[in-house]
Design a protein around this nucleic acid. Structure first.
Lengths: 337, 337
DNA sequence: ATGAAAGCGCTAACAA
DNA sequence: TTGTTAGCGCTTTCAT
């Protein structure tokens, strides 16, 4: 069993144990000769520093906790992958925790993360009460919320400009000549869902239109039921803005499969996120592109900043997003092919 | 900053530091009175044991390393989610590492995992040379390969019965009356891809049919190119078995979108995995169902067994899978609706 | 059942 | 630059 300690390396190399430690500590001082001897001995014994011991002393575990609720919406696994890569490049690693969007559950999970002495926490697809935010701050652990915000709170977050995004969708549907518009929103318990909806309906109201609104809860089944309900009314909508792509696919499946309708001829559908699947031929979904890479970069940047300087100010970062037009929507008026 | 130590709790509770430790150690002995006093003091100070320190001493980090290559194939995020939940329920957590399928890369990642003193390693969608397997064994860290096997190797693995699965698909396509059959295989560098292909072509050969075979590399783009190539030949296939669902979706997109063909009238498509998307109306893909829950359970079980008893034998577990018939394939002969 | 004492493997002053 | 000496916060003998 390969449990080699720095002491054994020291003995073999004929130096002190602390010399070994220095050789394996980035910013430490050691003569070329010592480095040489130690490296050789270490290689021979297959020695590697014990991260746990190091973490305990320095208080730097090099671990970032990631709390995530859903992994069935493709946006999140992709975010996880990118975050992991970006963090790995900086010598950090991700400890994954799954939690439902229940506040108690999140609290428990957060406590465990604190127990693990993680250096930072990223929450994705989960909300946090300000009480929880406080708790982490007390423990001295920086938190960045990914794709969720928290109103007027003392916490860093990275989202796209959801309100503006919702407005852009409204603008677009209006320009396509739609008047009878519905919205299957993201869960109203999430800032993301609320903001998109707000931007959307505010812009529509300016045009004197009040969209029919249902909460899709970020769930395929709920979105499907909402679609069925919407289309069953006296004057069904000819355009539906869906709170995210994940639900939009369900809406399209329902529209085309169950109801035998044509998208976009009978009903136009617009989503939000632009996950890879949105561009697949089977859907070709018009959607707001959330720039994943930039969101990930901003998240990592925010986290690193706070880790290096705990007193750095918290910031709510909003990244602009753009509408990607595909086949699930009609052409805006006055725009020829 | 909430860095409360057991010593502070001990002082407040009027007991020794070791008493505090015992109270927080599951199998330890302490009188009801002591437990009471300590718990009260701990609660007052907000004390929680430092996992890092505990891990260092006991050698039990309660962390499982997960090495994963792709997260764009929906099968893996789902596996990750289930694994995380199952492990969380047992008090373990997942440290995620992403690695390409390059042996050196995997080696580096594995070394980092060993540095972190993880108690076990799960590899998903990545292969491991037996040299790497050895290394982990030397470090005393159990490894379970998920959805990958290693021929005649000294390692635990959990897969579905891929060879048999491939044969089942062949059998099915034959029963539908197909004669001109192609296979866009999973990456041949993976046991999973090889086994499915082997079972498939062996069964077909019995019927005197030699399928045209292309390696799809588990990649949408490669699968698309393969489809284009296959359909461009003099006698294009009327049935394609694709090595996994992820590629099968690309094949269907290409067939229906780019080539304007009908599935299954012109070409039948069968996949492998049965990810949720396979059942969505847009695809309705006939596919082999890999029982994710059972695979996850087996993986966790195997890992726990090896963690508890390092000398437990390694086993290659194969879980049976069944064909799920949907709309992307024709009806087998002699079977009425 | 409890406290004292000895480490786990390492980093970080401190002298030399 | 180097070795010596303390610990980090905890678990674990070992007496009591």
């Amino acid at each position: 069993m390969g449990v080699v300690t720095s002491l054994q390396v020291a003995e073999l190399a004929g130096v002190s144990q602390s010399a070994v430690s220095r050789v394996f500590t980035p910013g430490a001082s050691a003569s070329a000769k010592t480095v040489e001897k130690v490296k050789r001995a270490a290689a021979e014994l297959g020695y590697r520093p014990n991260m746990m011991a190091r973490a305990m002393i320095t208080g730097k575990s090099r671990i970032i906790g990631l709390v995530v609720a859903y992994l069935d919406n493709q946006f999140y696994p992709l975010a996880l992958e990118r975050l992991s890569n970006a963090l790995q490049a900086k010598g950090y690693h991700i400890l994954v925790f799954t939690a439902s969007n229940d506040n108690d559950h999140v609290a428990r999970v957060l406590q465990e993360l604190i127990d693990y002495q993680v250096e930072g926490i990223i929450t994705a697809s989960v909300g946090m009460s300000s009480a929880l935010t406080e708790r982490c701050a007390d423990a001295g652990i920086p938190v960045v919320m990914f794709n969720r915000g928290q109103d007027g709170a003392h916490i860093s977050s990275v989202t796209s400009a959801n309100r503006e995004g919702g407005a852009k969708v409204a603008e677009f549907l209006l320009s396509c000549g739609h008047q009878n518009i519905a919205h299957i929103g993201g869960w109203q318990g999430s800032s993301t869902g609320r903001d998109r909806q707000l931007g959307f309906s505010n812009r529509l109201e300016v045009a004197g239109i009040t969209p029919r609104i249902v909460d899709g809860m970020y769930d395929r089944e709920v979105a499907r039921a909402a679609t069925l309900d919407l289309m069953d009314r006296r004057s069904p909508p000819d355009a539906i803005f869906v709170g995210n792509d994940h639900m939009a696919f369900a809406v399209m499946d329902c529209l085309r499969g169950e109801l035998g309708l044509s998208v976009p001829d009978d009903v136009a559908v617009v989503g939000y996120d632009d996950v890879p699947m949105a561009s697949w031929a089977a859907y070709s979904l018009t959607t707001m592109r959330q720039p994943l890479n930039r969101m990930v970069d901003a998240t990592v940047d925010r986290l690193m900043t706070k880790i290096e300087d705990k007193s750095a100010p918290d910031r709510a970062i909003e990244i602009e997003s753009a509408l990607i037009q595909r086949q699930s929507s009609r052409q805006p008026k006055g725009h020829d092919q």
